[in-house]
Nucleic acid binder design. Structure first.
Lengths: 192, 192
DNA sequence: ATTTGTCTACCTACTAATAGGTAGGTATCT
DNA sequence: AGATACCTACCTATTAGTAGGTAGACAAAT
């Protein structure tokens, strides 16, 4: 693995484990057994590393979206949720949650990159939900975008909250989201 | 206002605006026009201030619970949600969300205090939901605790996410939570 | 074939600023 | 006299970041 990619990977890990203001270039350099100046060679500023990490997620989500393009909505949803399940397995929180907390302490370039990422994730999930509803697979009232906001906030904060309450609650939340969407409770569609 | 209370207040603000690792005793001392050593007089360590801030929330939630004790479940729910609405109005995130992000960078005493707070909030909301359901006011499937996890995660992350997507989305989420609970879509209760 | 120059990826050695925290002194009030 | 609430003055560690040097790879020019 090349150093630049390794720096991004370690930076991402530290960011989601400890938060943006709790890791330093020296933390990264120690992990790679190089000097902190060498990390600055690859990323002149911490903000430039931050933007690179966010961009990596934009790529990753774009890939997931393309890969699952032909699949049924439920499979797409599961692909989407796997991102958070994987994070929970490593006791990491989601990038968006981590950076939203520290939002006003980071560079404007990072804030803008984060905005792009959020819009991308939100539009993907909105499309999945809309598609699932028109397929008759998902049941929910209101706009697909609003439902997407609800599902994303559930998953985002589930990663944070269950650090305190325990991993079992994460499963609970994940299960409830899916059950609610596929209407396992045999709901009747409302007027409106 | 006495200095100790003022320190807690400013600390809370900074914590929820910028995150635990992005504020210092000097930030607080500047705001109060005293010296950083004077802040250390009231709180010997940063962790001790952190614990005091968390304890303040335990008290505040306890008070809210008592105050709303006689009210109907929907009124209690609104009282609960007001905490988050107020935060959104000030562009602050929730304490739990902020500290969960930085959880592994803070003192164990703070982690334990946060655990207590989370259990307290969760048990209050669970009781509200359970009560509302047996009153016939709220409709949801599954356990009240699971539903409480869903509502809390929605509100927690809504504060974070809508820093990026805009305040309107916060209203959207809040409205959807209430509509879902009171079953404005005229749902039919499922078997089980 | 060897010299030359350029590029990459590191290095040593440093800076100014800030962090959390401490020792010990002082003014005021009871 | 003793407690309270501040102060000055300091400490050590760490932060993000910089200046300038070097070893090795590679390609073109001699």
């Amino acid at each position: 693995m090349d150093t630049r990619a390794a720096i991004i990977h370690i930076g991402d890990t530290l960011l989601r484990e400890r938060g943006y203001n709790a890791f330093s270039f020296t933390d990264i350099s120690r992990e790679l057994d190089i000097k902190n100046a060498s990390v600055h060679y690859h990323f002149p500023t911490k903000a430039s590393l931050g933007v690179a990490i966010i961009s990596e997620y934009e790529k990753a989500f774009e890939d997931l979206r393309k890969e699952s393009a032909g699949a049924p909505a439920l499979a797409k949803l599961r692909t989407f949720l796997k991102v958070y399940i994987a994070a929970r397995g490593q006791n990491k929180i989601c990038l968006v949650g981590s950076l939203a907390t520290d939002l006003y302490t980071v560079d404007e370039a990072m804030q803008q990159a984060l905005g792009r990422l959020v819009r991308q994730i939100l539009s993907w999930l909105t499309a999945i939900l809309e598609e699932g509803r028109s397929e008759g697979m998902f049941f929910f009232s209101g706009s697909a975008r609003t439902k997407a906001l609800l599902v994303i906030t559930n998953m985002m904060a589930a990663l944070q909250l269950t650090r305190v309450t325990g991993k079992k609650d994460f499963q609970e939340i994940k299960g409830a989201i899916i059950a609610d969407l596929i209407g396992s409770g045999k709901r009747i569609k409302q007027k409106n």
